[in-house]
Design a protein around this nucleic acid. Sequence first.
DNA 1: GCAATCTTGTTAGTATACAAACGGATTTTG
DNA 2: CAAAATCCGTTTGTATACTAACAAGATTGC
Lengths: 143, 143
Amino acid sequence: MDQPSTKDADYVLDQQVGFIMRQANQRHLAIFARHVPDLTPMQFAALAQLCALGRVSQNALGRATAMDAATIKGVIDRLRRKGYVASAPDPDDQRRVHLTATPDGLAAFRTLTPRAHGTTAETLAPLSDAEQADFLRLLSKLI
Amino acid sequence: MDQPSTKDADYVLDQQVGFIMRQANQRHLAIFARHVPDLTPMQFAALAQLCALGRVSQNALGRATAMDAATIKGVIDRLRRKGYVASAPDPDDQRRVHLTATPDGLAAFRTLTPRAHGTTAETLAPLSDAEQADFLRLLSKLI
DNA sequence: GCAATCTTGTTAGTATACAAACGGATTTTG
DNA sequence: CAAAATCCGTTTGTATACTAACAAGATTGC
């Protein structure tokens, strides 16, 4: 009654969470691409987790970065092509492929990390510090 | 000084806006697919704007739904294949293609709109009413 | 100890996304 | 009015994303 905007009959796209979230994401991806032209956000995320975790299998890295098996495969293929990731068979489990960051990959990660942080900062820049904390807290509750 | 998590040296993926936003989006897309199996969120958004705007050109519809020209083309192709959208050449401007929702498209839009609203509700369900309002307000400032 | 089950990585198929380049049409500008 | 700039829709190429199916290897249960 008191919420005319949720009447079933009309659908105001600009008021739907999904639509606004998608646009916020688009903006963030554009900011990231400007700060870190070398790697996509997904490639950087995979590289970062690989550097943090040391040796992991491909699927495990996928889980650590919220990518499914099919998606992480493509990301790793591209990181390997760039020379940032190396793979070797796992002696203990013959299904697995162990991934490691190459020295180049580690160097790239170290160089790009400040820029990635800059990305986060610029994305959140329209909000005050207090608002940023609020936003992140609420956003985290949605996953 | 008081924010050790923004030290350049370490990069905690789980604390980056982009990463959390991406996951919130993943969750939303899954919820939408469950509520509206017939159409993807983008297809529904395009159909909804088309029903709201009446006759529009393809690129104009893309702008209304935040999709670039290459993206909206694929979405419209798929909506046309489903019989929800019809196209006709514009007599005034020979570059343009006028799009219209077919009767089937309009019927689908009316049937699916309540479910799309259910999607929004379920996506925001982890938040209280006050939190939802806060979240949408802050999110909107990020675009 | 072995059959049922699960995991790992791969492939194919579909659907966004965006950049870049293109030809054709229209508008702006000088 | 003609040249320049812009807009329209398309295509190509690359990069996520997820589903579904698969084969080979590892684990579990009984």
